[in-house]
Amino acid sequence: MNLRLLVQAIATFLTNAHLKGFITGKIYDGSLKRACVPTLNCYSCPGALFSCPVGAAQVILSSGGTGENAGATGEAAAAVPLREKVWNVLTGTPLFVIGLMTAVGALFGRATCGWLCPFGLLQDLLHRLPFPKFRAPRALRLGKYLFLVVLVVLMPLFWVDSSGFSEPAYCKYVCPAGTLQGGLLLPALNPDLRRLLGHLFAWKLALLALFLLAMPFIARPFCSWACPIGAFLAPFNRISLLRLTLDADRCVRCGACRQVCVAGLDPVDGLDAPDCVRCLACAQACPLHLIKVEAPFLPAPTSAPAPTESAGAGAPPSR
């Protein structure tokens, strides 16, 4: 069995190991939910043991802080003492979530997307189905940054209703992981919730269906276009401790790495690409072993496996 697939399956199980929830329809309410996983995993999944960083960040941002006058606007906000304003800014910023994702990104870049994310596993599995494969326009990849800035940060901060409350806009209007893990499972197990489903649910279901339909044809469409975690971690690929390097001088551009890339990239164009999920398939596929994995926390140097004879320096480029 593919090692990465095994790790993904174990991670998916461990983050959703509250098995009782899948029978009773009740979510886990223990203290493990203080912590977030560095992947997209809805905390309203009946099995979820930990919190989702995207949901958690929106909750903190929409709170406006924990001071007495948090969320005050207009003249009331002007009258708030400076000390309380500073406190509200500090407690209204998701420091724990930002810190967690920064630490994870600095260590691994987007490797958690490739090795631990349950929604990534779903995308990888569906992409293995024998359908024709396509590459989507590169511009769509910018979508995830828009979702991060507008729906995860700006809307919970500024889109406040008349009673002074704002909502986790990304969870409410977009998140297909939430629809899949919470939206389908919880109402299926709870008739009371089922009666409340309406237009918003229909919209989210349609969005989920769109992504599911795209997955067999396009590599990781959700990660590339709409995942805020992917958007946050993407810049870390350039500086993370876990790195991939390519001996470009010896590369014969055979295209083997491009064929296996789960993110639909061409690794020869740059191994630090923001959408690389560090699955290492390119390093395994390179017949000359020119793609190397580097990190301070890896074991002692190993000798490179002998290059495959059939793919020597004289092999013609495929493109």
């Binding site: 939910k33 420091l95 629809t179 939206g183 919730l193 489903l197």
Partner: peptide, 23 residues
């Protein structure tokens, strides 16, 4: 230190109606 994880716990232990698509 600022109590963020306790607030995350408060939210995450209740069913998130937005996540489900109820609103």
């Amino acid at each position: 230190w600022f109590g963020e994880t306790a607030r995350i716990l408060d939210k995450a232990t209740q069913v998130c109606l937005q996540c489900i698509g109820i609103g």
